[in-house]
Structure formats: C-alpha cells, structure tokens
C-alpha cells in the first residue's frame, strides 16, 4: 500500500496536521493534548484500515482483470451493492461480457470468412471452368464461325459477370472492412430515389412494369448519396426481377423525428418463408432465385445501409409481393 505515492503524501500530511493539532492541544492543557493525540491516532488508524481495505478491493479487481485478459470470461464479480466500487465491478462485468461476445463473434467471423472464401471460389470456379472449356474449344480451328462467335460472346459475358462479381466483392469487402468513408450529406430522398431507379427504368419499361413514387417532398436523410443510391438500386432491381411483366413497384418515403424510412414494395411472386430471414446473406440463393443471381446485391445494400446507421427489413407474402423497409436513423446507437 505504501508503494502508492498518493498514500505516502496523504499520510505525511495527516501526520503533520495531527501533530500540529495535538501540539496545540498540549499547549492548552495536557489532558486535552493526550485526548487529542489519542483521537488523532485513532483517526489515522481508521483511515489506514479503510484505505487498506479499498486497495485490497482494487487488488482483487486487477487480479480479476488479469484473468479476463487471459481469456477467462466466466468470472462474476458483481455484488449488487450501493457504492462506487460495486458500480465499478458491475461495469467491469459488462465489459467482460462484451469482450467474451466479441471473442465469439471473432470466431464466427473466421468461420464466415472461410465460408465466404469457399463461396467466392465456387462462384469464380464455375465461370472459369466454363471459360477454360470454351477457350479450349476455341483453340480448335475447325470450329465453325458462328459457333466461335457464340463462344467468344459467351466468354465475354462470363468475363463481364466476373468483373462485376469481383468489383462487387471488392466493394463489399471495403465496406465491411470500414475502409470506405461514407460522406455525411443531407440528401433529399426524392432525388435519391430518382437516381436509384434511373438505371432500371428501361428494363422496367421492357417488362411493362409501372413505377410509383410517393412521399414527402421535403423528406431528407443524412448519408452518402452515391452509395445509398446504389443500395436502393440493388433493392429495386431485385424487386423488378421478381415481379412479372405488367407488375407494379411502389416506392414510398417519409421522415419523422427518429428516422427517415423508404419502403419499396412490389406485387410480385413474393419470397418463400424459409428464405425470408436469409435473403440479405451473402451468396444466399433462394428457392426461386434467378439463374444468374449470385446473391450479392441485397447483401451489399444491407452493408451500405447498416453502415450509415440504417436498418433494412423485409416482409413478404407468397404470391402477393414483397416489401423492403429501409430506415435511416438520426441518432447513433
């Protein structure tokens, strides 16, 4: 205990004050001096005992922390009493819980990474295999011209797909790694939605689908307009793909004191109930996923939205349509 500088200082100070006080009392009368000396000594003793107890508690806590550092999360130091020490214990416990949780998350992440890698390699392997087959066939000089042209086109399209896949994965990994700096600008939701639907207006027209956009013209949100537009675009695209010709897609948005929400709904085939919890997962392909789908668009949308303090939710009924609800919260939790 005496190792602590502050204890030495305060002890010296207390001793000095007590001696001075006792001396002054002696000056008044011997009896008073004796009583004062005894009283001062008792006070110092009590103080020392108390300090010792407190340092012991600190000592115990540091021992406890050491064990946590060693990876033992099962300890519980909480004693549920009033007082600062008990609060400290409680806070330490909460940190422990968080740490242990993070440790298990880390484990999950590792697993996830391994899964992802196998997913990615799987995704890459298929086009590469088909391309290498076609490349081999192309080497055959007897190949008729029209076949050759078809293979080249095929390889081209596979390469496009690969390019898109790789760039998407790159984006996704950058988002997940947090290396992307999302801008924080006030965006008018109306403009954002217009930007997001622009690339799919033509495909929609081809499928004779109607698009309806309603909402508060003044609604705004804080975020990065490019990324957010991309996230929305992925969702709208998904809706378009799962909605038959002549269908309808509705985008509605509003702002309240807590968040800005954008709902995108279609009257398409809907999502299977088993798929519903998983559609935002990377490389997840639902029961009626498109042939070309690699299950990365919605995952990226979710990453973008959640990284901008937003949530995305989906509800769907088989045969009636699907609704995506995107909420951008104002505060940070």
């Amino acid at each position: 205990m005496l190792r602590n500088r502050e204890i030495r200082i305060i002890l010296a100070l207390v001793a000095f004050i007590s001696t001075a006080g006792a001396a002054a009392c002696f000056y008044i009368s011997v009896a008073a001096g004796i009583i004062a000396s005894i009283a001062f000594l008792m006070v110092i003793l009590a103080f020392l005992l108390f300090t010792r107890w407190r340092y012991r508690q600190i000592h115990l806590l540091s021992g406890y922390l050491r064990r946590i550092a060693g990876g033992d999360y099962s300890l519980d130091v909480r004693d549920n009493q009033e007082g600062e020490l008990s609060i400290l214990k409680n806070e330490i416990y909460k940190v422990t819980v968080t740490l242990s949780e993070q440790a298990s998350l880390l484990k999950k992440d590792k697993q996830f990474l391994a899964d992802s890698l196998s997913d990615i390699s799987h995704q890459l392997k298929t086009p590469i295999t088909s391309m290498s087959v076609m490349a081999e066939l192309l080497q055959n000089e007897n190949l008729p011209q029209d076949k050759r042209a078809e293979f080249v086109r095929n390889i081209h399209s596979q390469l496009e797909r690969l390019k898109w896949l790789v760039s998407s994965l790159l984006k996704l990994s950058r988002i997940d790694a947090g290396t992307i700096e999302f801008k924080k600008e006030r965006i008018r939701v109306r403009e954002l939605v217009s930007r997001a639907v622009e690339p799919i207006l033509i495909p929609m027209e081809l499928k004779e689908q109607t698009l309806e956009i309603t909402g508060d013209e003044d609604a705004e949100l804080t975020g990065d307009s490019n990324w957010t537009a991309e996230a929305l675009a992925n969702i709208v695209k998904n809706c378009m793909e799962h909605t038959p010709a002549g269908g309808r897609i509705t985008i509605a948005f509003s702002e309240n004191s807590l968040y800005t929400d954008i709902t995108i709904s279609d009257n398409g085939e809907g999502i299977h109930k088993q798929d519903l919890p998983h559609i935002f997962k990377r490389f997840y392909k639902g029961k009626n996923a498109h042939q070309d789908s690699i299950g990365i668009g919605l995952a990226m949308s979710r990453s973008i939205i959640e990284n901008q303090n937003g949530t995305i939710e989906v509800s769907s009924e088989k045969g009636k349509g699907t609704t995506f609800t995107v909420k951008f919260y104002k505060g940070v939790v």
């Binding site: 600062e84 807590l258 104002k330 505060g331 940070v332 939790v333």
Partner: peptide, 19 residues
C-alpha cells in the same frame, strides 16, 4: 439512483436517437 452522472456524449447520442 446509483449516484452516477451519465456520460455526456453517451447521453447526447441516446437522446438524439430517441428524438
């Protein structure tokens, strides 16, 4: 009730989330 003062920035964040 615990005799604590809330962390200012934490509280600010919370109340802004709560609007």
């Amino acid at each position: 009730l615990d005799g604590r003062q809330p962390d200012k920035s934490q509280l600010d964040e919370l109340v802004s989330t709560l609007g």
